[in-house]
């Protein structure tokens, strides 16, 4: 019997696991963007004094986790579980961070939706009484993602206008059963995988928009809520192309998102930063949440948001073999809890 389950795919957390602390660390380009003031740390050099970009990504993640723990005045040994995800093969950044932290670890992979997946699972563990505290994180780095998915950095190639720019940044949030910051997780909707036959790896927004549409519909149906019950519905990295497709898909079914919908990929960079359709990557939604969105929730500017990042679940191999790109979106409801 599923006690804390609504409809087909939504979970309810009666204890409303609260956010104990959060932190974000970003690269220089993200720091220069419109959300620059909301991040905890902007590193001046995206290599961070390391000898590889992979090590820099790890360092960035470790810094975000350390800052999150110290803000909550906790040590790594006080935390019961660590859930982390990133974009590198075998989710190595998270695993190597877990090696340093020593916290019991579950790696999660939902591509760019990893932050929501980690928070969703963290909330389940805390609400179910399996953990008092859960550290959740996601990270991505432009230069590691480029070499894994695309071309060498110094290759003089052009990008099409639908392409996106992987965010260099790490976000971490500590969830707990004790009273923390006045923000908690009340619901989460586990997304299913959707594939509308899109194959263009330079147009990820188009590949992922159907998944966001389906998860949003399922969430609203399961909870009996309407778009207007949310101050903000936030997708992760659909970018300009994907978010306008999502709006259109919703409108065709009579769901008007209007000003209540934003996309982290469209918010994190300015139009003059040469990122075409917008930001992307697991870090995109993570740092936007762990910077700008949490501070808006804490300032009372927002009361309830649906954090719904999307992920493209292909690999370089499947793309080269001509397979289409499956998409996923997980949603987490974050609410101000007085």
């Amino acid at each position: 019997m599923m006690l804390n389950h609504l409809g087909k795919q939504t979970l309810v957390f009666p204890s409303r696991p609260s956010v104990l602390s959060y932190a974000s660390v970003v690269g220089p380009k993200e720091g220069e963007g419109p959300l620059g003031n909301f991040f905890d740390e902007i590193v001046p050099d995206d290599l961070m004094g390391q000898d590889s970009f992979e090590k820099a990504e790890l360092k960035m993640l470790e810094d975000a986790c350390d800052r999150t723990l110290s803000k909550a005045k906790k040590l790594a040994c006080d935390v019961d579980v660590y859930l982390g995800g990133d974009l590198l093969n075998q989710i190595v950044s998270s695993a190597y961070a877990a090696r340093g932290l020593g916290i019991p670890y579950l790696g999660v992979y939902g591509a760019c939706s990893s932050m929501a997946q980690a928070m969703l699972l963290g909330a389940v563990l805390v609400d179910g009484g399996y953990a008092d505290t859960a550290l959740c994180s996601a990270v991505s780095h432009f230069s590691t993602a480029e070499r894994q998915y695309r071309f060498p950095l110094e290759l003089g190639s052009q990008r099409p206008p639908s392409s996106q720019w992987t965010v260099t940044g790490a976000g971490a949030v500590l969830l707990g059963c004790e009273k923390g910051l006045p923000v908690g997780i009340t619901h989460a909707t586990i997304g299913s995988v959707w594939d509308m036959g899109q194959k263009d790896i330079n147009n990820m927004g188009a590949a992922m928009a159907p998944a966001a549409h389906e998860t949003l519909k399922a969430h609203l149906l399961d909870t009996g809520r309407d778009v207007t019950d949310y101050d903000l519905i936030v997708s992760g990295d659909l970018g300009k192309v994907g978010s306008s497709i999502l709006r259109e898909l919703c409108e065709r079914e009579g769901l008007y998102l209007g000003a209540r919908y934003i996309d982290c990929g469209c918010e994190i960079f300015g139009d003059d930063q040469g990122v075409f359709s917008g930001g992307s990557g697991a870090g995109c939604s993570a740092v936007t949440l762990c910077g700008w969105l949490f501070s808006r929730l804490l300032s009372g500017d927002l009361r309830r948001i649906l954090f719904m990042p999307t992920g493209a679940l292909m690999s370089v191999t499947t793309s080269q073999q001509g397979e289409s790109i499956p998409g996923i979106a997980h949603a987490v409801t974050l609410e101000v809890i007085p």
Binding site: P152, E154, G156
Partner: peptide, 30 residues
């Protein structure tokens, strides 16, 4: 050279310099 490539596209890819760039850039990367 990648900055030139962003600006010029095929203009800097097609000449022999583009070919050299396509060999040197992965060598640096890896």
């Amino acid at each position: 050279y990648d900055e030139l490539g962003k600006f010029a596209g095929a203009g800097s890819i097609v000449p022999i310099t583009g070919f050299a760039n396509s060999v040197v850039s992965p060598a640096m990367e890896f």
